[in-house]
Simulated scan of single mutants.
Amino acid sequence: MQNLQFKNGLLYTSVRLIHNGKEVIVNDVIVDTGASHTIILSDYLLDLDVGFLDTDELVKSSGYGGIVFSAVRKKLDRVCLEGVCLEHIKVDFGEIDPYERVNGLIGLDFLMRSKVVIDLEGLTISN
């Protein structure tokens, strides 16, 4: 079970990215049931020391207000929210918030595949 923070009218958490033996914690990630796909700020690719591969995809997504962003979609070894982990999940890396207040969004791809339960009263997420 992982605690969520309710701030600025949104649910925030931390996520752990693991790839090729390296691990990074990303704080200030929004749990976003309105996002179809998980996206993390591209700065974290440097922390994971992940290069670009032929299997990576360039994708476009539209954010709040219809702003279109480009991102690179990469398959990571593992993405975890405390005890809730998924292996071999594709994550988008790109710009999310031009004001840099948000480091990522956990989207429905992760939430549905991991079958998590979001407890809004207790502000927790678990599976």
Rank of each mutant, 00 (worst) to 15 (best):
L76R: 03
K115Y: 04
T124R: 03
L48K: 08
S70F: 01
Y44I: 11
G122I: 01
Y99H: 11
R16D: 01
N103Q: 05
S14H: 06
F52Q: 14
T124A: 05
K22A: 06
L58K: 13
R78C: 11
I18G: 01
F110Y: 14
L11T: 04
I39T: 14
T55M: 05
L120V: 14
I125D: 02
D97K: 09
G34S: 12
H88V: 03
N27Q: 13
G104R: 07
I25M: 13
L86Q: 10
Y12L: 12
V15S: 05
D97L: 00
L41I: 00
L76C: 01
L120C: 09
N103C: 02
R73T: 13
L41Q: 13
D119H: 07
D32L: 10
K7F: 03
L86E: 09
L58C: 07
L108S: 08
N103V: 01
D109Q: 11
G51T: 11
L4M: 05
L11V: 04
L53Q: 11
R16C: 05
I25D: 07
V29S: 07
G21D: 08
K7C: 02
D47A: 05
V117T: 13
L10A: 13
D97G: 03
V68W: 05
G9P: 03
Y64R: 05
I25V: 15
N8A: 12
A35E: 06
F52D: 15
F69M: 10
L111I: 15
V31G: 02
L17C: 10
V91F: 05
I30M: 06
E87G: 14
L11I: 01
I39N: 04
V59K: 15
V26Q: 00
L11C: 08
H37T: 12
V68Q: 09
S36K: 09
S70Q: 13
E100W: 02
K74W: 03
V72T: 15
P98T: 11
H88Y: 09
L111G: 04
S61Y: 15
D28P: 00
Q5M: 09
D28K: 11
I106E: 00
V29F: 05
V24W: 03
V117K: 08
L41R: 13
S62D: 07
S62G: 11
